[in-house]
Write a protein that binds this DNA or RNA. Structure first.
Lengths: 233, 233
DNA sequence: ATAATAGTGTCTCTAAGACACTATCCG
DNA sequence: CGGATAGTGTCTTAGAGACACTATTAT
């Protein structure tokens, strides 16, 4: 084992899966590890690369959820690479960190393979939870990337149900950014957006009905081009 | 060999090193591979991870230049991860792509270990050069990341000599973006910037002298915060 | 009626684009 | 002087922040 590891490090994919709770607060999914290393500790869900099954490292990330939580990931995105000899007791390792967004209600978070607990945690309170390995840093990177994108006007529609009100979308953005947005400016921006489509449906409640919107065809969670010469990827 | 590779993939760091040529056009450094796989083909410089020497994967990237080109990298940044069974004939592999900026004149590009040629290539003409492996895609990712940052108002000072004029900086930004910028707006932006410091020195030539500037202490190649709630990392 | 939320109008401020203008060197 | 590049001033426009306002439901 050791001799192999000298040439070929352990490669894993870890996923920071974000969702909104019933109060529309941002949450990140943690699992409690049932086995060593770091048994009993909370961590991001992740898997070791299996070259026989995984077409690429993103497939490893997606497989994590098929195996452990029976869940298909909608939007997955590379965020960071952490590597080194000391981050995992098993030796030199490299983790590709992914960020993903999901509707919380889509998830039946059930414990599974090598996992004996599942929790939707407050991402800002992560520091106090002493996560396994360097996963606190992973959460930090993923959260920063997510905030950056939303601050740059990407719409986190993957956090919302298929149809949603503009107020709900605003709450989602506020949850990500951690600060309130101005309603008028927010809606002004969306008025001219091609990423949103109004529907005929209206949400009714104990107040004025709100129009429901949905993502336009071909929607992707991307920030629009920068002021000058921004390049799409 | 094969049995190892089933569990532990080949891990490499590839570097897209950008510089400006004597006409201030953007260039990316390519090397010609002297050995198989892909012998004779042009590629990005890169190295296989050596867990005994490399503290992390960025160290692998930096070592590439110490070994092959006797060059210290100033600014290095993760850009992308490419992975899969088919991108390298040796089997399942994972490459972390880094982008780096350097003053061209700092580089004596000399062929070295396993390299029999070195060239500063036009990054936009890369498609025609049929690079080794998936390195054309690497260049594309690195260039997109670089453009994105400069479009978002990060200053690519690492492309310039220690002291430079505002016109020179503008040419550097234009080279990265591939389009002209307005002089007045450009300078207006820099007037209030804390990233630049004027010096007492002036560049003289066959025209009006230009004031020389330098990077402020603690300068880093980062885009300023987004309009609302942008997070530093 | 009130509470609650949806949705709009308007004023101001800032940054940027466009572009003409002045300044200072060399020869 | 002309040629070249450095550096400035000014007009206009687009977008965002602030915030007050109107609209429509349930009870």
């Amino acid at each position: 084992m050791v001799s192999r590891r000298l040439l070929y490090p352990l490669v894993t994919a870890d996923v920071a899966l974000f969702g909104l709770d019933e109060r529309d607060a941002l949450r990140v999914l943690l699992v409690r590890r049932a086995e060593d290393p770091e048994a009993g500790r909370w961590a991001l869900p992740g898997s070791v690369l299996d070259p026989e099954r995984d077409a690429d490292i993103e497939a490893t990330a997606r497989r994590t959820f098929a195996d452990k939580l029976r869940l298909e990931l909608p939007h997955v995105e590379q965020v960071h690479v952490a590597s080194g000899a000391r981050r995992d007791p098993r030796g030199w390792s490299l983790s590709v960190v992914f960020a993903a967004l999901v509707r919380c209600d889509h998830v039946e978070a059930q414990a599974a393979l090598r996992i004996d607990g599942v929790d939707w945690a407050d991402p800002d309170g992560i520091a106090r939870r002493r996560l396994a390995f360097d996963h606190a840093s992973h959460v930090h990177h993923a959260l920063a990337a997510l905030r950056e994108k939303v601050a740059r006007r990407a719409l986190p529609l993957h956090l919302l149900p298929e149809r949603f009100t503009l107020s709900h979308l605003q709450r989602a953005c506020e949850a990500v950014l951690g600060e309130p947005l101005d309603k008028s400016a927010f809606r002004r921006r969306l008025k001219g957006s091609t990423e949103l489509e109004p529907t005929d449906a209206w949400e009714r409640g104990p107040q004025r009905p709100a129009q429901l919107f949905r993502a336009a065809k071909g929607f992707a969670f991307r920030a629009p081009a920068a002021p000058r010469g921004g390049e799409g990827d």
